[in-house]
Amino acid sequence: MKKQIVTPLIMATSLIILSTAFFYGCDRDNENTPGNQGVTRGPQVKVGNGTAQSFIKLDQSGKATSIGFTMTRGALDNLPQQGEHGAISYELPLPAEKQKTAYDHISLDWAPHGHMPNGVYNVPHFDMHFYMISQQQRAGIKPGTAEAEKLPDASFFPPNYASTPGEAEPAMGKHWVDLTSSELKGAPFKTTFIYGSYNGQVIFHEPMMAHKWLSTEPDTLITLSKPATTLNASAYPGAYTVRYDKASRVFTISLELTQKQ
């Protein structure tokens, strides 16, 4: 057998390659491999002076348990102020694991001057739309059409929800609000949860959060009421969370998915 001579340079190079492969493999196992508890992520999107990035969390069986996005603290700064009432949309594509959920994409909409009704939501805030239809389908939503005004059965909403007056919003649909929300009773708006519909279907879930409230760096979980009828999907949001990590200066905002029985 021929004797193999290994130089220090070759040994060092080999160790670097092996180490890189090892850590890469661990990262894949911990974050991206179905069957292992982990997180898969979409691309980073610039927001203000920071970034936002979608994610989907899977359990050990590969089922989605959480969907949302992370947002750096700088994303609250230097946001655009143009538009009297218009919102600026930051589209957050979801990773391929979205097929394990009811959702297609997230639209993080910044409303620098808020929107109607005055005295309630006309403060700077984020509308965080978790859409169950594609962007192409959204583009076809127009107010005043029969499809836009066709409402889902009331059983698809918790009993305390009602549709807002007026026509559907273009590229969004009809909005449904929680009538028990504190801001509708005169309290300052902090956060609430909205449903959206189009053509007789629920098409989005929407946490709304005031910029001022997010700036306090909240850390909370808000339980959601369950509709009598849920979507034809394996899970529905049982709660939404807002977490802030002071060390990394990153928010985590997510829908916590409850598996249907």
Score class of each variant (00 low, 15 high):
257 L>C: 05
99 Q>L: 09
181 S>I: 06
137 Q>G: 05
24 Y>I: 11
113 H>I: 06
211 H>S: 13
200 G>P: 01
239 A>L: 12
219 D>V: 11
240 Y>C: 04
16 I>V: 15
221 L>W: 08
149 E>Y: 12
50 G>F: 07
42 G>N: 08
219 D>W: 06
228 A>I: 09
43 P>V: 12
111 A>S: 07
199 N>V: 02
236 Y>T: 05
203 I>D: 00
52 A>K: 03
84 E>A: 12
12 A>K: 05
14 S>W: 07
39 V>K: 11
239 A>W: 10
21 A>G: 14
84 E>T: 13
186 G>E: 14
187 A>R: 10
164 T>P: 01
198 Y>N: 11
27 D>V: 09
32 N>K: 11
184 L>R: 13
19 S>R: 01
125 H>S: 09
206 E>N: 07
106 I>K: 00
96 A>Q: 14
229 T>I: 11
201 Q>W: 04
22 F>D: 02
103 Y>D: 04
51 T>P: 00
163 S>V: 11
102 A>M: 03
180 T>Y: 04
191 T>D: 04
243 R>F: 13
217 E>L: 13
60 Q>S: 11
126 F>T: 03
152 P>M: 06
239 A>N: 06
23 F>T: 11
123 V>S: 08
247 A>I: 08
82 Q>W: 08
89 S>K: 10
53 Q>M: 07
5 I>M: 02
96 A>K: 12
141 I>M: 03
124 P>M: 09
205 H>D: 09
201 Q>Y: 07
188 P>E: 10
87 A>E: 14
163 S>Y: 07
202 V>N: 03
58 L>F: 11
168 A>H: 09
66 S>Y: 01
123 V>L: 05
130 F>G: 02
219 D>N: 14
189 F>M: 08
62 G>D: 07
201 Q>H: 12
225 S>N: 14
50 G>M: 09
25 G>Q: 07
163 S>N: 08
1 M>F: 15
261 Q>T: 13
12 A>P: 01
84 E>I: 14
56 I>E: 04
2 K>D: 13
240 Y>P: 02
31 E>G: 03
54 S>M: 06
68 G>R: 05
40 T>D: 10
18 L>C: 10
195 Y>S: 06
133 I>G: 01
240 Y>G: 06
260 K>G: 12
132 M>Y: 00
236 Y>W: 15
128 M>D: 10
194 I>D: 01
121 Y>C: 03
115 H>S: 09
66 S>F: 00
151 L>N: 03
231 L>R: 04
120 V>Y: 05
151 L>H: 06
170 P>V: 08
40 T>G: 06
143 P>F: 15
5 I>G: 00
88 I>K: 07
201 Q>D: 11
212 K>H: 12
61 S>I: 14
208 M>T: 05
120 V>G: 01
109 D>W: 05
30 N>K: 07
229 T>G: 05
150 K>V: 00
190 K>E: 15
174 K>S: 10
90 Y>A: 08
66 S>N: 10
194 I>T: 13
189 F>W: 03
160 N>D: 14
73 R>P: 01
174 K>E: 02
51 T>V: 07
186 G>F: 10
208 M>H: 02
71 M>E: 03
